[in-house]
Design a binder for these strands. Sequence first.
RNA 1: GAAGCUGGCCAGACAGUCGCUGCCAUCCCUCGUGGGUGGGAGAGGAAAGUCCGGGCUCCGCAGAGCAGGAUGCCGGCUAACGGCCGGACGCCGCGAGGCGAUGGAAAGUGCCACAGAAAACAUACCGCCUAAGUCCGGCUCGCCGGAUUUGCCGCCCGCAAGGGCGGCAAGUCCCCCAAGUAGAGCAGAUGCGCCAGUGGCAACGCUGGUGGCGGGCUCGGCGAGCCGGGCCGGUAAGGGUGAAAAGGUGCGAAGCGGCGCAAGCCGCUUGGGGGCUUUCGGCGAGGGUGACCGUCAGGUCAGCCGAAGCCAAAUGUCACCGUAAGAGCGCACCGCGCUCCUGGCAACAGGGGCGGCAGGGUAAACCCCAUCCGGAGCAAGACCAAGUAGGGGAACGACAGUGCUGCUCGCGCUGUUCCCGGGUAGGUCGCUCGAGCGUGCGGGCAACCGUACGCCUAGAGGAAUGACUGUCCACGACAGAACCCGGCUUAUCGGCCAGCUUUUUUC
Length: 144
Amino acid sequence: MAFSSARAPRAAKPSSAPVGPRAARGSASKALPHSLRGAHRLRYAEEFAAVFAQGSTRTGVYFRIHFRPNKLPQGRLGLVVPKRAEPAATRRNYAKRLIRELVRSRLRDIQGFDLVVRLRKAILREDAPLARAELERLLGEVRQ
RNA sequence: GAAGCUGGCCAGACAGUCGCUGCCAUCCCUCGUGGGUGGGAGAGGAAAGUCCGGGCUCCGCAGAGCAGGAUGCCGGCUAACGGCCGGACGCCGCGAGGCGAUGGAAAGUGCCACAGAAAACAUACCGCCUAAGUCCGGCUCGCCGGAUUUGCCGCCCGCAAGGGCGGCAAGUCCCCCAAGUAGAGCAGAUGCGCCAGUGGCAACGCUGGUGGCGGGCUCGGCGAGCCGGGCCGGUAAGGGUGAAAAGGUGCGAAGCGGCGCAAGCCGCUUGGGGGCUUUCGGCGAGGGUGACCGUCAGGUCAGCCGAAGCCAAAUGUCACCGUAAGAGCGCACCGCGCUCCUGGCAACAGGGGCGGCAGGGUAAACCCCAUCCGGAGCAAGACCAAGUAGGGGAACGACAGUGCUGCUCGCGCUGUUCCCGGGUAGGUCGCUCGAGCGUGCGGGCAACCGUACGCCUAGAGGAAUGACUGUCCACGACAGAACCCGGCUUAUCGGCCAGCUUUUUUC
């Protein structure tokens, strides 16, 4: 099970978690937020665990997404790219970039949600459009 | 030009838009894991495998022995190395060059496919030899009795008692014999015998019959001799195999074989052990000399002489063995071993001399030898905040457990008592200025070293380099930092540069 990513979960303390919320104001001044900086990320193991435990799930060929309302003005993204799905480090990085780029352009769809995207199958470079379309479809289901 | 060899370098480029992570400057706020603006930086030659070596950090430092691991031609470089450089040697390549864990195989153990008698030294096997022994087979020759006791039967002699002869059965013995245990059967009318007839005075015949004896033939038993084979025994040379079975090659001479009319040419061989022995030599009971010691019996040491006998033995000689046959040599070179000289720091190379040519390979098989090796690793480790009883020090110390890489000894810890006050992935540091990079100069064949000047070149922490658009080209491989260096190995699209080699003037 996803060694590289599962490392974090255990530790995060509950007390330190709820700091992020306020940051959203700065970006809120802009019409469309395109940034995926600190406030838009899931950082702690407890946050991941909460999404897995309480969120909804949609599954496709390449991805499985978990999401849950977070009572914040912005959406937050977490990635799980297991070594089992993609053994080569280079292509694992490629998959993360692909996901981040796509989510960044669709930030509005996940506003107010914590989202975890989990890779299920290696994405070959020539299959990228397929994977991209699938992720867009899955993201579309978040708000329903 | 083409084909190659070696070394080095690059790792799509440019522009725009939207994004990501640090850094610097500045600004804003709800003051922190926040945000805005500007500037500048942002993966690799392998970042990989984690295979070596080191730095750094903590732990241990009480060691000793055994075990274990690594390395393995020589010299140098280096912080260190299993790396690099230079050299030596071996192999490969026409060559530039490439490859090589390259100490020891007379310390021991093991292994050596197939083939082969045999794969390691001692045999066994084939082959060869074979006196005696033993077994089997063949051929030839010989033998298949005698004496005696008892019983029975037959015949003869005698009036009878009884005696004689022969046969059979059982038993005993062996003077003699190479053998006597075992004989059985068949045929034939001729040698003997017997019967009948007949001739003759007789000796002696003739004719016919008979199958008793001898002889013949067949089978059988036994013995001897010879031959052959097996076992046992001996065995030096030889044994188409194989990567390898104990040196090789050349010339001359000799011999044999083949080819050729011949001259001549070609091929093969020139081995093996053994007996005897002169001289020289060794051992040798003992004798004698000198020195020393001594309890005066002798002892020790060093020379000398030395009977019988034994050993060794070049050479000589003698036959013998093997080979299709015969000859039963000589010289030289290479290799090998020992030794000396020269050159080299050394590995090693060159040369000279001597030699009874005696000993397969494998050590990335165990092993032996030499050298080196404390453990764990940045989740090391340090600090801070918040927070529960985990930790540290000292003293004592029997058992048990446990730690010190493994084992043994040994030492420590867990244990008890007393004292101290804070473990952990939440954060900060460690975290990138370093055995650093570039250029020049100097030293060195080189690896590398020294020096001057210049430069700062990722530091993330769910983890940063991407997406889209356009243009161009040789159409883009392998692949993503996680404490840091030096190496090795592996993966890899294409291309560039330098030096060199071969072929050579057109492939």
